[in-house]
């Protein structure tokens, strides 16, 4: 039994079926990368896992328990699963430290002091502790995204979802964000990334899934997908990426 199991997951927006039967297993401590063209359903899939979107068919199980469909305590699920968004989504009216400590205090019941202690420790890990009392609009994009990651980590999730977290960043800021993800992977965090950063995906992932037209067209270790893709579509996609100089 895998840590995260997706069985025949379907998701429709109106008449447009975006996910057409996703089957996927993610083991603990694995790093799974989702690649594919825009609109192939990468973001949608991640949002379905933490129930920001509800699925129209199939089942999702986390740690053996069903977490999709009716009768699920969504807030409990979301304590286990953290997500970081492409557009950071920090709370602009609160300081960096408050962003990080809000949920631990309100949801996990930590005292303010304890949450702040842990928050500062997390900020130290990414080298941003002097920004603790700043507001998000004073930080660069890369710094904001790193704070967003730390904000998700403060809830001590067992699974971290990363939805194209570098796509909105200037190229020179991408590196600092990816460094954190690399560290997290080394520390054994179970993660799923939707990303266009193919080089990075090749480096950190245990498994790469190529999404095409709502299904996982091919999945396998990074060497396979990027160097010896089995399916034609995968080949074509990887080829285009290499030509664009992104691999």
């Amino acid at each position: 039994m895998a840590f995260l199991e997706l069985r025949d997951v379907h998701k429709r927006f109106g008449s447009n079926e975006v996910l057409r039967g996703i089957n996927l297993d993610v083991e603990l401590h694995q790093v799974v990368c989702l690649i594919g063209a825009s609109g192939s359903g990468k973001s949608t899939l991640l949002r379905c896992i933490n129930q920001l979107e509800t699925i129209d068919g199939g089942e999702i199980r986390l740690g053996g328990d069903r977490v999709s469909g009716r009768g699920i305590d969504v807030d409990v699920l979301r304590r286990e699963v953290g997500i970081v968004f492409q557009s950071f989504n920090l709370f602009p009216h609160q300081t960096v430290l408050k962003n990080i400590t809000l949920a631990p205090v309100k949801v996990l019941g930590f005292t303010k002091e304890l949450a702040e202690e842990r928050g500062i420790a997390l900020l130290k890990r990414i080298g941003l502790e002097e920004k603790a009392k700043e507001y998000p609009d004073r930080l660069s994009g890369g710094q904001q995204q790193r704070v967003a990651i730390v904000r998700a980590l403060a809830m001590e999730p067992r699974l971290l979802l990363l939805d194209e977290i570098t796509s909105a960043l200037d190229p020179e800021l991408v590196g600092e964000v990816l460094n954190i993800v690399r560290d997290l992977a080394k520390d054994g965090m179970t993660m799923m990334l939707a990303t266009h950063e193919m080089g990075f995906a090749k480096e950190v992932s245990s498994k790469v899934c190529f999404l095409h037209e709502g299904v996982i067209h091919e999945e396998g270790p990074p060497e396979q997908i990027f160097e010896h893709p089995q399916q034609d579509r995968t080949k074509a996609f990887v080829q285009r990426i290499i030509e664009a100089g992104r691999l």
Binding site: R78, V81, G82, N89, F91, L102, A103, V107, L108, A152
Partner: peptide
């Protein structure tokens, strides 16, 4: 997206 981020944190 603000609501999404907040709810995703478990609020």
């Amino acid at each position: 997206s603000q609501t999404a981020a907040a709810r995703s944190l478990g609020l």
